[in-house]
């Protein structure tokens, strides 16, 4: 007989409902508007590290089928709202990612994403810390650690002035299993290996650790820092070794954004990954003018895991993929 019961117990279901109520209360008090945008759309993010799931709509006007993507985050639609003068907005919705499944990954998960016109990413980090503490119901120390500092401390390597062979050497010297035989393309693949295997687990032990100033090659949709353009105004939040959130001082330059999409698409082609259509409506919104803003996406299932001290997502999700 198939296992029909939920994998999360009643405590976890109540904690999830309480967390959603706390989030809505948090933003209502601050005058941030809740919005609702499509999960299904004809374009998606081009990031080669994030693979969207695909489906096809067949019906009126699309007798031969309209290819659609399940959104990997509500970012592009929310930025279109911002460009249309929505003011500060937030959304709680599902996000979908192909290929991601494990104790801390499920192909479908709940995301909280919000945007603050007029904020820079430093001010947004303050607000993220406040929201997380409101959800957890306890105070925690907060620290900010530049990406470069973490690598210097752990490996004695400057990630902004390095090359794949030196990073590979560091991985081997530090005994990262399989480092000698793995084939990674470029500096970023090696930085990801060194970060995920030698640094992440130690981040945010009993505190909220914001990793800041990512290398420009990992800017994604963040602005570059004007005082050091080798780095981007991007941050990630860790608690007890678990990555909870990713935020940007948002890129508002349409030309630069188009160039980054094109670069992503070239990378996808070079790696034999399927192409993803550029979101022209989003680019048009940037062209019309996105207000200066900072935005962040936070994984609510993982935050719930930390709140209940659970080691795996299936303790907080009623029906993870294995139970569907």
């Amino acid at each position: 007989m198939p296992e029909w019961r939920p994998s999360a117990g009643p405590e976890a279901l109540k904690a999830r409902a309480a967390m959603l109520a706390a989030i809505r209360n948090f933003f209502a008090e601050r005058g941030v508007l809740e919005v609702d945008t499509p999960l299904l759309a004809p374009a998606a993010g081009t990031d080669p590290a994030i693979e969207p799931l695909r489906t096809v709509f067949t019906g009126p006007g699309h007798a031969h089928g309209l290819p659609l993507y399940l959104q990997t985050s509500p970012e592009f639609f929310m930025k279109r709202l911002l460009a249309a003068d929505s003011g500060p907005i937030y959304q709680v919705c599902k996000a979908f990612r192909d290929g991601e499944l494990g104790p801390r990954h499920n192909p479908e998960f709940t995301i909280l994403e919000w945007y603050r016109p007029g904020f820079d990413h430093h001010r947004l980090m303050d607000e993220v810390a406040e929201l997380v503490m409101a959800c957890l119901g306890r105070e925690l120390p907060v620290e900010r650690r530049p990406y470069r500092e973490l690598f210097l401390e752990r490996y004695g390597i400057d990630p902004l002035e390095s090359d794949p062979s030196r990073l590979r050497q560091a991985a081997i010297e530090h005994g990262l299993p399989g480092a000698e035989s793995i084939a990674l393309d470029g500096v970023d693949g090696w930085l990801d290996l060194l970060l995920s295997h030698g640094i992440e687990a130690g981040l945010g032990q009993g505190r909220l650790t914001f990793v800041t100033d990512y290398p420009a090659s990992q800017a994604v949709l963040a602005r570059l820092n004007p005082d050091d353009p080798r780095t981007a105004a991007r941050f990630e939040l860790y608690l007890d070794g678990i990555e909870l959130a990713n935020g940007f001082q948002e890129l508002v330059d349409a030309t630069e954004q188009r160039a980054r999409f094109a670069h992503d698409q070239a990378l996808r082609a070079a790696r034999g990954q399927p192409p993803v259509a550029m979101d022209e409506a989003f680019l048009a919104a940037l062209q019309a003018g996105l207000p200066d803003c900072a935005g962040v996406a936070l994984g609510l299932d993982r935050l719930l895991m930390r709140s209940l001290d659970a080691a795996q997502l299936d303790a907080v999700m009623a029906f993870p993929l294995g139970r569907c």
């Binding site: 494990g102 970023d188 995920s196 295997h197």
Partner: peptide, 14 residues
Amino acid sequence: NEFVKPGKGQAFNR
């Protein structure tokens, strides 16, 4: 077989 992935980066299986 553990799936490890920095949010915006290369995915690994440890």
